[in-house]
Computed example of a mutant assay.
Amino acid sequence: MRLRPLPAFEDNYIWALVDDDGAALVVDPGDAAPVLEAVGEGLSLRGILLTHHHHDHIGGVPAILAELPHLPVIGPHDDRIATATQRVGAGDTARIGDWVFEVHEIPGHTVSHIAFHGHQVLFCGDTLFSLGCGRLFEGTPMQMLDSLDRLAALPGSTRVCCGHEYTVSNAAFALTVEPGNTALQDRSVEAKRLRLSAHPTVPTTIDDERACNPFLRIDVPDVRGAVAKHVGRALLDRVDAFAELRRWKDGYRA
């Protein structure tokens, strides 16, 4: 079984999980063209998983269904996703063929965001990024921090398949927060090398993110201290620290 990131738009990835016989599912196809091109090259598409309602993650579904009308489309409980044939939430199981995934509700980026975890893979949309996390468009800092805490508790070898290629820019911010983190320094160098050769920097792993991602390291003294210094005051608690770290990232320009 292998993961295949299909580039879309400027920096999106549509993830394909492909078995040894060429059967596959795809995750968050915001653009139909890369998926249908892969199908034309022999990919046998069996279903679609959707993590949240944003158009760059669901916009290609109608065109895919026009070509393959009987595909199951599994997504969150959100009426903004009209193409879903099955809706799932926390504690549910998503099944497509022989693939079975635990469903996690991870609000923050959106209120109905979900993730799919199975086969040592995590499809987390725009909640957890390589060295970062999503913007809080609909949820609260407390919700997002809780979501990230639960993802960080998954097995360390879990491959993290996020929705965008943001590693290089996220690394620049992370190094501003925690410049002495040698694992982060190495990740930054490697990410630049991969992008210069037009290779993806993802998937990463939960272990890698625990070691390097400041949004999963809000309890690390160096990270907490950097946030307090940036805002110029004592932090109330870990939610306050996370909220200020996310606000710092929102305004950051490399």
Results as ranks from 00 to 15, higher is better:
36 L>D: 03
37 E>R: 09
40 G>C: 08
42 G>I: 01
42 G>V: 02
43 L>E: 03
44 S>G: 10
44 S>F: 00
44 S>A: 14
45 L>K: 01
45 L>E: 07
46 R>F: 02
47 G>F: 02
48 I>G: 10
48 I>E: 11
48 I>C: 12
49 L>Q: 05
50 L>F: 03
50 L>I: 13
51 T>I: 03
54 H>P: 00
57 H>L: 14
59 G>V: 02
59 G>N: 01
60 G>M: 04
62 P>V: 07
62 P>L: 09
63 A>G: 10
65 L>Q: 10
67 E>Y: 00
70 H>K: 11
71 L>S: 12
71 L>V: 06
73 V>W: 02
73 V>H: 04
75 G>W: 00
75 G>E: 04
75 G>Y: 01
76 P>M: 07
78 D>N: 06
79 D>L: 12
80 R>N: 13
81 I>F: 05
81 I>A: 14
82 A>F: 00
83 T>G: 08
84 A>S: 14
84 A>D: 09
87 R>K: 11
95 R>G: 09
96 I>D: 08
97 G>I: 01
98 D>K: 07
98 D>Q: 10
99 W>I: 06
99 W>M: 13
99 W>H: 10
100 V>E: 15
100 V>G: 15
104 H>T: 08
106 I>W: 07
106 I>E: 14
107 P>D: 08
107 P>G: 11
108 G>I: 02
109 H>K: 09
109 H>S: 12
111 V>S: 14
111 V>W: 05
113 H>P: 03
114 I>S: 10
114 I>E: 06
115 A>T: 00
115 A>R: 00
116 F>R: 04
116 F>E: 08
116 F>C: 09
117 H>E: 07
118 G>L: 04
118 G>D: 00
